[in-house]
Nucleic acid binder design. Structure first.
Length: 317
DNA sequence: ACTCTGGCTCAAGACGAG
DNA sequence: TTGAGCCAGAGT
DNA sequence: CTCGTCC
């Protein structure tokens, strides 16, 4: 997921693009957040004895717990979050998704084995690998957000692409995510560690795309090709080319076509049917909602509705 | 000497009681 | 699953 | 700070 080693490359080659700060700096700021990614993290992390938290009817509540407290924390700090939900993944990602499904199926079997063997530790490990965000998880969270007066957006495809679009459209200040590909989608401001900075001793790290491009000495088109060389979700990369060689090659040849004409293909095997052009298109013109299709409004929470939903329906206290 | 790979590890959210 | 960090080993 | 609990 994301762009392989991009954070490290920027830290090494364009350190001026990174600014460290604290929660208070974001008071009054609107921030787009990948909802599906957050939910996934909550489902993986919020567990007890290897199982998600559930209410009396057996419905999972880990995602609601996580999203509820995290969102409250942000609002308390004056941040206005807008959550963006994933739509249909693009075709190019299907290979990657197939792989993930395969791994989940495998983990499912291992989980059962561990349960039979009474191996709690292994069960725990494999249970985390079987996590999948479902329609129900998403719907629960949308319901919660509505009651909290926090807006959300349904992305046509990739949530990160839509988050970046909101930045470009001037609707939010930046994207709050751990996933560096928000930059590749053209978000000028990416904020990492936005939420766990207070609980843990991790400073908030803000990445500026503009400054990264300046520091690396390349333009945005070249940056896109650089990200593809580093390794993205949409196609393979060239074995033997990592952060250093990728940046050198881009600086020297400015695009992948020219690089391909000039590198020694015996040393660096180019993948068969390399779909770098399609990947490039996905980053350049991803499917996103036009500015007038999203209306972001933050309102007062519906307290009665929240109590009714969380306490009565979902068993919170 | 530098760079990349692939092996391994670990943690993963948020809160508050003690 | 992800990512990050670390380290050994091999390729350039 | 660490650890147990949240549901």
């Amino acid at each position: 997921m994301g762009i392989h080693n991009l954070a490290k490359l920027i830290a090494d080659q364009a350190p001026a693009a990174i600014k460290e700060g604290e929660m208070a700096n974001y008071f009054g700021r609107k921030i787009a957040i990948d909802a599906s990614m957050s939910i996934y993290q909550f489902l993986i992390a919020v567990r007890q004895n290897g199982e998600n938290l559930t209410n009396d009817s057996g419905e999972t509540t880990s995602h609601l717990m996580g999203m509820f407290y995290r969102t409250i924390r942000m609002i308390e700090n004056g941040i206005k979050p807008v959550y963006v939900f994933d739509g249909k993944p693009p075709q190019l990602k299907s290979k990657e998704l197939e792989k993930r499904l395969e791994r989940r199926t495998e983990a499912e079997a291992e989980k059962t084995k561990a349960a039979d063997a009474g191996d709690g530790e292994a069960f725990d490990k494999f249970a985390r690998r079987t996590v999948k965000v479902t329609r129900e998880h998403n719907d629960d969270c949308k319901r919660l957000l509505t009651l909290m007066g926090v807006p959300y957006v349904d992305a046509p495809t990739e949530a990160e692409a839509q988050c970046a679009a909101l930045v470009k459209q001037g609707k939010v200040y930046g994207v709050g995510t751990e996933d560096m590909d928000a930059l590749t989608f053209g978000a000028d401001v990416l904020v990492r560690h936005l939420t766990f900075s207070e609980t843990r001793k991790m400073p908030i790290r803000e990445y500026s795309l503009t400054k990264a491009l300046q520091g690396l000495g390349i333009n945005f088109e070249e940056f896109t090709d650089l990200c593809i060389l580093l390794g993205c979700d949409y196609c393979d990369s060239i074995k033997g080319i990592g952060q250093k060689r990728a940046l050198d090659l881009i600086k020297q040849h400015r695009n992948i076509e020219t690089i391909l004409k000039n590198i020694d293909k015996k040393k660096y095997a180019v993948p068969d049917d390399w779909a770098y052009e399609q990947a490039r298109q996905l980053f350049k013109v991803p499917e996103i909602l036009p500015a007038d299709a999203t209306d972001l409004k933050w309102t007062e929470p519906d307290e009665d509705g929240l109590v009714s939903y969380m306490v009565k329906e979902k068993g919170f206290s």
